[in-house]
Nucleic acid binder design. Structure first.
Lengths: 342, 342
DNA sequence: CCGCACATTCAAAGCGCTTTGGGTAACTGA
DNA sequence: TCAGTTACCCAAAGCGCTTTGAATGTGCGG
């Protein structure tokens, strides 16, 4: 059933039917009612492509996901973000289109997306320092919101980010206050902006305490469980092992915990762990009392918020770039305790 | 730059330009070259919506994701599946569109998708027993592939599934052979077809060994870490605790391990664990020797395969529904050992 | 030199929708 | 009664592409 058929059925023009359904005022309420009923009855839904072609809007938001053996973009965190954003899209009648592209084609992918007109805007994931995509997108004039931030970018852009530096600074401070001096940082890939900022926070807290950072206690990589495990295992074998770990993700923390337990050490006693908890739905940080002491900020909520900001920007392109910086809460769990006596 | 502009620029008709770019034979090779060069130079990309409207194909595959507080569809496993499917889509020039819908609207969502013509086909996720979506989709004539299977569905449909029953049957058998008799099953939601089949495998193996299933040793829920943890903790407190666990997911297994360690028991000695390992990229089952003994089947590979089958079906609608049943491999890790002497 | 086949190219219709720019009829006030 | 509104509805253009059907030019055998 398309518009023409429906209008013929009703003995009305396409114009009137279209207007009736889209809530325009210049149509009699009785007529509108009739049209709506008929539309519902025949399960009429306007063809998106035709509608898009006519209006110039795609009613869809793009998420460009580079795939490579280097870095897994489609991960646990991403999944939760998508879930949050997706709900918001749904509420506003937008679709989510994911474009997987091999890394080297990412730039082209944004160009294509704009040219092909298949989306009204995009979300930028996993910004690195001085991320080129931001400049590209503003140049292309495609509305976008960055999940995270990018240091050293001159342009004003919309984003939602957690105060990563502050969060990890506080976490480190807490461990220092508990008497720990050998504190390890098991971080995400340091070309990611969030990882850089977290490292800054870590370093800054150590510095304030007059402690020199030990390169042996800092690792960064893809945030998987085995990475956490391997890092902790190696570090715990050092001559002067750390008594505390800061992990950039709960997934890493789970790996660290495994290594701790394998070494017959007790979490929260012999070794303290604080992680950054993105409140991932499949890895809630315990059901009652949190397992890990953590800096917490819901990535799902971030997804929702990014979507809202982007949609607002699309509805009214004159809105200035909206930046939002969230403070993570520091919640106490069972994984931290005073530094063990030497 | 659109087709008209490009053709005017070249002094050719839109017809010729379109044909040149789409590889039709009735255009002079020299002309084609010129057109292609100009297109590349001006970064011309046909507008998807217009193209879709003209051809009747959307060049996009839909994934309908119900969101509810009941069940998290967008999870770790889903993310990896999407990654696999997405790569295949990309290779074939297809986009992936995700529609989030509240549960109760799922049926309508498929209807809408068909009507709106925004996708050429869909993937059905997480089929339950006698899943209504299958009938609906064949009725609607929208090509689809099911990831998993649905017991009690009369219609022939395309799917890619793992032999869940057989896999868990073998896993249970292994534990029985190792001398375990109190074997727990920590399963996914039993309205999911895969969970049902796994339970069948579990029960069938127990039965063959003449062991009666104990309801206290069977749990099923959303497959989160805390669920695994809680289940194992409770069961280990029983008068006759299990000496082995079968977990429907590596995520559950991680929770079980936590509970085991909290009880000061040793994994692979006091308690054995076998899990179903979907080879999720963020939770590889160890880097060298697997952590968990596991029945393994890559969900990402399944994503790829589902996509291929679906695209083939779309290219040639006459292809009969292709069903594919994979056997999971049973790989030995460090989490299993002989049953402890009582 | 003619007629025919073939190779190229083009104009125009159509995909299903929105929206512009009228129309027509009914209603208003003088 | 009549001009001026107002309310309602419509025909047609246009979004950017593909594709049908026709036109043009070219080369060939006769």
């Amino acid at each position: 059933m398309n518009l023409r058929e429906l209008s013929e059925l009703l003995g009305l023009s396409q114009t009137t039917v279209s207007r009736a359904l889209n809530g325009y005022p210049e149509v009699n309420e009785a007529t509108r009612r009739k049209v709506q009923d008929a539309a519902a009855l025949h399960n009429y839904r306007p063809n998106t492509r035709a509608q898009g072609l006519a209006t110039g809007r795609a009613k869809a938001i793009g998420h460009v996901i580079p795939y490579s053996t280097q870095h897994e973009m489609v991960n646990v965190i991403f999944a939760d973000f998508i879930a949050g954003a997706g709900e918001t899209y749904a509420e506003h009648g937008y679709d989510l289109v994911m474009s997987m592209v091999s890394d080297e084609n990412e730039t082209q992918a944004y160009r294509d997306l704009t040219q092909k007109g298949s989306v009204d805007g995009v979300i930028v994931h996993g910004p690195s320092r001085n991320d080129q995509r931001i400049e590209l997108l503003s140049e292309l004039g495609l509305p976008f919101v960055v999940h995270g931030r990018s240091t050293d970018v001159a342009i004003e852009y919309a984003c939602v980010d957690v105060n990563n530096k502050r969060a990890i600074e506080r976490a480190t401070k807490l461990l220092l206050d508990l008497g720990h001096t050998r504190i390890a940082l098991v971080n995400g890939l340091e070309r990611m902006d969030f990882a850089l900022r977290r490292k800054e926070g870590y370093l800054s807290a150590l510095k304030s305490a007059g402690i020199e950072a030990d390169p042996e206690l800092m690792r960064s990589s893809e945030m998987t469980e085995p990475f956490g495990h391997g890092s902790a295992r190696d570090m715990l074998r050092l001559g002067a092992p750390p008594t505390a770990f800061i992990c950039s993700s709960i997934v890493i923390a789970m790996g660290v915990r495994r290594a701790v337990e394998e070494s017959d050490l007790k979490l929260g006693e012999d070794v303290s762990v604080i992680c950054f908890d993105d409140a991932i739905s499949y890895f809630p940080n315990g059901d009652g009392e949190p397992i890990f002491t953590a800096t917490r900020s819901s990535v799902r909520e971030a997804g929702r918020r990014c979507a809202e900001i982007l949609l607002a920007k699309i509805e009214d392109p004159t809105t200035p770039p909206h930046q939002e910086l969230w403070e993570a809460e520091l919640v106490l769990g069972r994984s931290t305790g005073p530094a063990p006596r030497p």
